[in-house]
Simulated assay, not measured.
Amino acid sequence: MVDLKSNKTSFNSTFHKNEELPNSFLVNFNEIKKEGKEFVRISIDGTQIGDVIDDNSYEKDFYRYHDVFHYTFATMLNWSPCTRAMLGRKRKSIPIIDEYEDGARATITEEAISLILFNEAKRTNLFENRKVSKTILKIIKQMTEPFEVRVKTEKEWEKAILKGYSLFKKLVANRGGEIEFNLDNRNAIYLNN
């Protein structure tokens, strides 16, 4: 089973290959216009992942690119119930893990973290100062206490958040692009300039 005391833990270990997060994957964020609105279509290897997303807001704030945060959490923290759901990588072979770690509560928690961070980012010019407030990091740690990701430190969360926002800025500036996510080296690289 997963050793929750180790920060080096792979939450993939002991699961079927088709339940593991992929070691690396390329995600294409393609902005499209439909009926005068901007949307983002996300694909991996030419296959659309999830729904086409808009900002779901009166304000045009580019939230349509927010899935980059989920993929970054998967890559840098080895945790993202949202990514597991989008990629069809839920760990169904162990029902309790499927229910508690990859289920609705975990997914809603991750989406809530994404939204909290997004609202904080708007106030801090997308974390221009390269810092996430201690208060926000403590809230995230409290929110994730019931889940396997609780072993990740505030510093690891901050690094993942800042990386996600650096990628988000590039997606917004270029109205899309392709990002390579690599779990082996815990990094993500924006490929299109």
Rank of each mutant, 00 (worst) to 15 (best):
K37Y: 07
E35Q: 13
S114V: 08
V27D: 07
D184F: 04
K37L: 14
F29G: 08
K169W: 01
K8L: 08
E59S: 15
T153G: 02
N129Y: 01
I96T: 14
S13F: 12
V172G: 12
T9E: 13
N78Q: 05
A85V: 02
T47Y: 08
S57E: 08
A121K: 12
S6F: 01
F118Y: 14
C82L: 13
E120G: 02
F39G: 04
N30G: 01
L137Y: 10
N187C: 02
L77C: 04
M143G: 09
N56R: 12
I42L: 12
F127M: 07
G88I: 05
E19D: 08
K37Q: 14
K92W: 10
T83H: 03
N192C: 10
R91V: 00
K169L: 01
A74F: 03
T144R: 03
E38Q: 14
A74H: 01
S13M: 07
N192D: 11
L26H: 09
I96N: 13
P95N: 14
E145G: 04
K33P: 03
D3K: 05
K159V: 04
L117E: 07
R175E: 15
K60I: 12
I136F: 00
V151N: 15
T144Q: 07
F25H: 02
N174C: 11
E101M: 11
I94T: 10
D3G: 04
E31N: 09
F118A: 02
F15H: 15
T83V: 15
I32T: 15
I189M: 08
